[in-house]
């Protein structure tokens, strides 16, 4: 579909879904009573959640698109380099290891994701290609997973339960106080993503040609890595790991736009990501199910389709 037609449509769809987030839910509020003080308690929660779902959908989808292009791998996603493992280590240390931090779960998760990111930036300066970076990312992620497992094994039942609940992901844990920080992190990640569109487009041609057209590969990889960490790390810090959105949405965006140009794919992924996560959140609210089970059930058919078509 032509971008000129698609983008207004997607924006309209986003607004409609956001409106649905406001009015739909187990507690029925007639529109006439919407602005009464006694309704505010429910409306406020829904408003916060729709903002969180929009930011999270945008962030995860753009991060997934970046990773798929960076590694020329259609099955890469925002967590392929171990960002979620890093975040989960931070949270596990807090909840299971009894290490206390000043900013709670979100701070611990952000610190963990930033730690993994720091390691990757350090190794990025030493490795020659994206594949080595991918392998190292997966190794870090497995190592961190092993440490988390040890912590789980040694911890008490109640601590274990709160950790497991965090890994299920939730869009409803963010507070109004945390929202500005979440927003700033996401906007910073998006600005970096927009600034690296040309690098992403060149990377489609492979590293040899990209370099021959003047691209500084190491620098571009680092900026993209930083952008993904802000986007996906931010979401994971505030909402827990939300699966499959970042993996599936870029494929939907490519299919809808029929282009390889990231100047179209980034905004398209962002809007589609917001729409799909808002939709998933509505389903999970109406059926009273955890959000991650819904995103998985929506995302997995897309991934299967991608694999079968290849």
């Amino acid at each position: 579909m032509k971008p000129r037609l698609l983008f207004p449509l997607l924006i309209l769809l986003t607004l409609m879904l956001q409106f649905a987030e406001l009015v739909l839910g187990p507690v029925k509020i007639p529109f006439s009573e919407f602005f009464l003080p006694e309704s505010w308690l429910v409306v406020e929660i829904r408003l916060l959640k729709l903002i969180v779902a929009t930011i999270a959908g945008i962030s995860l989808s753009v991060a997934g698109l970046q990773m798929q292009t960076l590694f020329s791998n259609p099955l890469a996603g925002p967590y392929v380099l171990g960002l979620s493992s890093g975040a989960s280590l931070g949270v596990a240390l807090l909840l299971l290891g009894g290490v206390s931090g000043p900013f709670g779960i979100a701070g611990a998760a952000l610190a963990g994701a930033a730690g993994i990111m720091f390691l990757l930036v350090v190794v990025n300066a030493r490795v020659r290609d994206g594949m080595s970076l991918l392998i190292l990312g997966m190794m870090f992620s497995s190592a961190v997973g092993a440490i988390v497992q040890i912590l789980q094994f040694l911890s008490h039942e109640s601590a274990l339960k709160s950790y497991v609940v965090w890994t299920m992901g939730s869009l409803g844990e963010v507070t109004w106080g945390q929202l500005p920080l979440f927003g700033v992190i996401a906007v910073a990640g998006l600005v970096l993503a927009v600034l690296t569109v040309k690098s992403l487009n060149l990377m489609l041609l492979g590293p040899v040609l990209a370099r021959s057209m003047g691209l500084d590969l190491r620098r571009s990889r680092m900026l993209i890595l930083l952008s993904t960490t802000l986007l996906a790390g931010g979401v994971t810090a505030f909402c827990g790991p939300i699966g499959f959105i970042g993996l599936a949405v870029p494929h939907i965006a490519r299919g809808v736009c029929r282009t390889a140009d990231h100047r179209v794919l980034i905004p398209a992924s962002a809007l589609l990501g917001a729409d799909i996560l808002l939709g998933c959140d509505l389903i999970s609210r109406l059926l009273v199910l955890p959000i991650n089970s819904i995103t998985a059930l929506v995302g997995i058919p897309v991934v299967i389709y991608v694999v079968l078509r290849r």
């Binding site: 489609l204 492979g206 003047g214 736009c257």
Partner: peptide, 22 residues
């Protein structure tokens, strides 16, 4: 710099470019 070199020299490789919809 890579940018300066790119204004002097271009290359043609044998591998196929594989980018959907391009």
């Amino acid at each position: 710099t890579p940018a300066r070199l790119a204004s002097l020299l271009s290359i043609v490789t044998t591998g196929r470019v594989n980018a959907r919809h391009m």
